[in-house]
Design a protein around this nucleic acid. Sequence first.
DNA 1: CACTACAATTCCACTATGTGTAACGCAATA
DNA 2: TATTGCGTTACACATAGTGGAATTGTAGTG
Lengths: 251, 251
Amino acid sequence: MAESDVRPEARGTLGTVRNAVLLLDLLSEGPAYQHLNDLAERSGLSVATVHRLLRSLVLADLAEQDPRSARYGLGPGVTRLSERYLGRLPVLGALAPYLVRLRDATGHTVQVALLVRGNAVYVDRVDGQDGGIYRDAHRVRPALATAAGRVLAASADTPAWDQALETAEREQRELAEKKRDAWRQAPYLYVAGEAAAEASELAVGVSDGQGRAVAALAVAVDPDITEERAGTLARQLIQAATAAGRTLSHD
Amino acid sequence: MAESDVRPEARGTLGTVRNAVLLLDLLSEGPAYQHLNDLAERSGLSVATVHRLLRSLVLADLAEQDPRSARYGLGPGVTRLSERYLGRLPVLGALAPYLVRLRDATGHTVQVALLVRGNAVYVDRVDGQDGGIYRDAHRVRPALATAAGRVLAASADTPAWDQALETAEREQRELAEKKRDAWRQAPYLYVAGEAAAEASELAVGVSDGQGRAVAALAVAVDPDITEERAGTLARQLIQAATAAGRTLSHD
DNA sequence: CACTACAATTCCACTATGTGTAACGCAATA
DNA sequence: TATTGCGTTACACATAGTGGAATTGTAGTG
């Protein structure tokens, strides 16, 4: 293969692992189950190679094959790894004592999000009273389309911010490039839900003491919330976030 | 390398992927961050190989390196994959409408668990009133040590059941070998919490229509719950589980 | 401050092993 | 039964992944 590797980050890296991860990424996009040939074409690898990679991933439960259609999708193994990761993540432990309290004090659903590869990933939640019909836990959204994601991306380092820009839609990207400083300095951010069913979100950052947000704390609210009510909610969020941040930097 | 591969499952499988997955497994056990040399020894691979594998995994955010200690741990990328997987998992969508309702009706914390490689992985929850101080979301427990895991393992196929046996402690294993049929046929299972802080659990299976439990629905309860109260709770769980099961097999 | 110990990282020669092409099997149509 | 459209396997070649040893970096100790 041509040595067109100009990206310095990839030095001393294994092609097979790169390919395996590429496939996991492809599986994570689009429909739940996908055709081998599609995956081969989209990845630029030969069918045989994709087949071998998938077989290896299936053996590890990181992928699975639908017995009826023989198509491939992500497997349950990824959740096991994820839960192990989250179970030992300091931020979540630090936030844990405050979440239920916060839910009870505000009456709203409280969520915790991380920034991963330009996406806001919602990793924990405590559901409020209403909930509505559409309760989508397990959300992964382009960071710049959500309040939580904006809080995280705005205070992240340059590569992470750039990834967020790449992940975003054009309009969001243009908005973000103007607003980054404002977002970073604001005590809290608010983003109105786009779709009718989607709730609006109010978010603050949880800092690790080095001035970088390691997680976002958010509440889902009605789109017609008053300015005053938002301020009250924000104060409550900030209080919990700083308390959690203290236990983080403390130890 | 010696061709001692007698395991038929691993035919046509990539060693590099096997090794990468092995490392992810090692990272998911024990402390959050681990030394390169430990990992090399435990995996049976050379230090150089482990280093290259980890570097590749870090590039994909499936692993990360603590900047202070230079030790390696799981990375946030696994959560992104996991949330994508869970977000499209039919069972969770089918259960979603009932979870909050169930929490409100019972007052207890409701949880949803999957069986993954012999472990009960808790993938969704709706927190109840109390919660107590210790709210450990993101649990991964040996399946046979929990009510949810027993429900799932007992109705699973043979390899999955065997994995659950391997994962369990000796006592649990001996108990399980006697009880499997009873567990599979019982309308619900109850397991008292072991530690003082640990809640007890009452669980039922969510069937996909083929008589196999694809998820477990559980509530956390006090250890001194009365038989009668347990029956009432179980009825409510079963009702939600069968309703979700219908929408599953329906479409 | 030198010296030591230990851990992560890089170098390099070797061939094991992952790769693509092409053939095969096996359903579902028509 | 022919045909199409998949997933799966065979095979020969050279890429690219491997382990041992050398090298850097970082604390800890006298």
